[in-house]
Amino acid sequence: MDNSMKMRAKMQGDVAEVKVLIKHIMETGLRKDKETGKLIPAHFINQVVATCNDKTVLDMQWGVAISQNPFFSFKVKDTKPGDKVTVSAVDNLGTKFYGEIAVAE
């Protein structure tokens, strides 16, 4: 497993707050290379799925306007410390990213 994804999950009452950071260039495809004058091809994460205890809780589609090194946070209710949260992502070139973490108290 590479370390391109960082996750944190913490209880707030009976709600788990999950924070995720993925290392990715998120290239829009609209920028020009300053030396060649050619457009830099788009390269961005476009699909992300989060699960809690193997059930999908969040199914996301992203465009190029999610910032570089994407950060996102979400909340899942009726959870408890130790519950397993996973995040799977894929970019437009087919590169996959995965992270998992147990919810902390």
């Binding site: 059930k55 999908t56 969040l58 209710k77």
Partner: peptide, 9 residues
């Protein structure tokens, strides 16, 4: 972006 919530999210 588009976000779909399910199962407690």
């Amino acid at each position: 972006a588009d976000f779909a919530f399910s199962d407690g999210a």
